[in-house]
Simulated scan of single mutants.
Amino acid sequence: MNPKNWFVLTDGQVNGPFDVQEVESRVASAKEAQIWGRGQSEWMTPTKWRQAVKDSSQVAVAANEPEGLWKVRVEGKDHPPMKYSALISFLKGMTDYSTVDVCSDNSNVWKEIYSIPRIVDDLGISRRSHPRVPMVGTLACESPKGEFSCRVISISEGGLGVNDAQNLQIGERFKGTLTSPNLFVTINTTCEVVYVGNDGYAGLRFVGLPEEFKSSIIEYVRKFAMV
């Protein structure tokens, strides 16, 4: 089985899903192609994508090893370590996994649940329901601390994932202007910080997003619906 898990971005257009061989074929004939699949944080160059494919295979093998303890983080809030069975029970009580990350004591690396095939299978969830998809864009922000900008790497109907975020605090709100070659409109909204990482990554929630902007985001997100 060769699943169609990958999307290709060329000239501002998203196409997919494709399997690995189809991606290789498209990359060979495209200039500056970027690639994304479920569980990846942002668009990748072909070189980084090939490494991600390799790493994904290794994760699938590791899933059969002893489980140990697992940690789960929801909207930046850490929960106590738990056994794998307890982790699955905890996750089954949720309906939105867009702000959930998990970490095994074997790897000590936080990952989206969609990047771990065993969890996806044991939860019986569809990758199609995952609302967070990659984006190339910039968020210009205005806060009481002054003006700053972040690089947008993912988006959902509910919010954004950004890099290069400095000195943000959970609960902080500010006005933001999102511009992206992936969207037909410039989005003006208020954002609330729901997660801050040590690597400059932050999760933002839209506050009072106007319907016309929400419609544009939904249209973009639907391009990544798995078939």
Rank of each mutant, 00 (worst) to 15 (best):
residue 159 G to D: 03
residue 188 N to L: 04
residue 124 G to R: 01
residue 130 H to M: 12
residue 164 D to S: 15
residue 105 D to L: 03
residue 126 S to E: 12
residue 177 T to M: 11
residue 143 S to V: 02
residue 144 P to K: 05
residue 120 V to S: 05
residue 109 V to S: 15
residue 151 R to I: 07
residue 98 S to G: 09
residue 144 P to I: 00
residue 162 V to D: 04
residue 109 V to F: 13
residue 178 L to N: 13
residue 146 G to C: 00
residue 100 V to G: 04
residue 129 S to N: 13
residue 117 P to A: 11
residue 107 S to K: 14
residue 177 T to Q: 15
residue 152 V to I: 09
residue 156 S to D: 05
residue 159 G to C: 09
residue 170 I to Y: 02
residue 99 T to P: 06
residue 116 I to Y: 03
residue 175 K to Q: 15
residue 173 R to F: 00
residue 155 I to T: 07
residue 167 N to P: 07
residue 186 T to C: 01
residue 109 V to M: 14
residue 156 S to N: 09
residue 187 I to A: 06
residue 145 K to T: 07
residue 104 S to I: 01
residue 167 N to A: 10
residue 139 L to Q: 06
residue 153 I to F: 12
residue 99 T to M: 12
residue 101 D to A: 14
residue 174 F to W: 00
residue 160 L to R: 10
residue 174 F to R: 00
residue 145 K to I: 02
residue 166 Q to D: 11
residue 169 Q to K: 14
residue 152 V to A: 05
residue 116 I to P: 02
residue 148 F to N: 11
residue 175 K to F: 11
residue 109 V to L: 14
residue 177 T to R: 15
residue 175 K to D: 15
residue 118 R to Y: 01
residue 165 A to P: 05
residue 159 G to Y: 07
residue 124 G to F: 01
residue 172 E to R: 05
residue 99 T to D: 10
residue 95 T to E: 11
residue 176 G to V: 02
residue 149 S to H: 04
residue 150 C to Q: 06
residue 184 F to S: 14
residue 97 Y to N: 05
residue 103 C to E: 14
residue 174 F to D: 02
residue 156 S to M: 06
residue 138 T to P: 01
residue 151 R to Q: 12
residue 138 T to A: 13
residue 107 S to H: 14
residue 125 I to M: 13
residue 170 I to L: 06
residue 126 S to N: 15
residue 97 Y to I: 06
residue 156 S to Q: 08
residue 174 F to E: 00
residue 117 P to D: 11
residue 106 N to V: 03
residue 186 T to P: 01
residue 159 G to V: 03
residue 187 I to R: 05
residue 120 V to T: 10
residue 172 E to D: 11
residue 95 T to V: 09
residue 177 T to I: 05
residue 127 R to K: 14
residue 98 S to C: 05
residue 163 N to T: 11
residue 137 G to R: 00
residue 136 V to R: 13
residue 171 G to Y: 00
residue 139 L to P: 00
residue 103 C to P: 09
residue 141 C to P: 01
residue 187 I to D: 03
residue 171 G to P: 04
residue 134 P to S: 10
residue 147 E to Q: 13
residue 107 S to T: 13
residue 172 E to I: 03
residue 176 G to C: 07
residue 147 E to P: 01
residue 160 L to C: 09
residue 140 A to H: 10
residue 165 A to C: 13
residue 175 K to N: 15
residue 171 G to N: 02
residue 139 L to S: 06
residue 132 R to M: 04
residue 172 E to S: 11
residue 175 K to G: 13
residue 131 P to K: 04
residue 139 L to K: 03
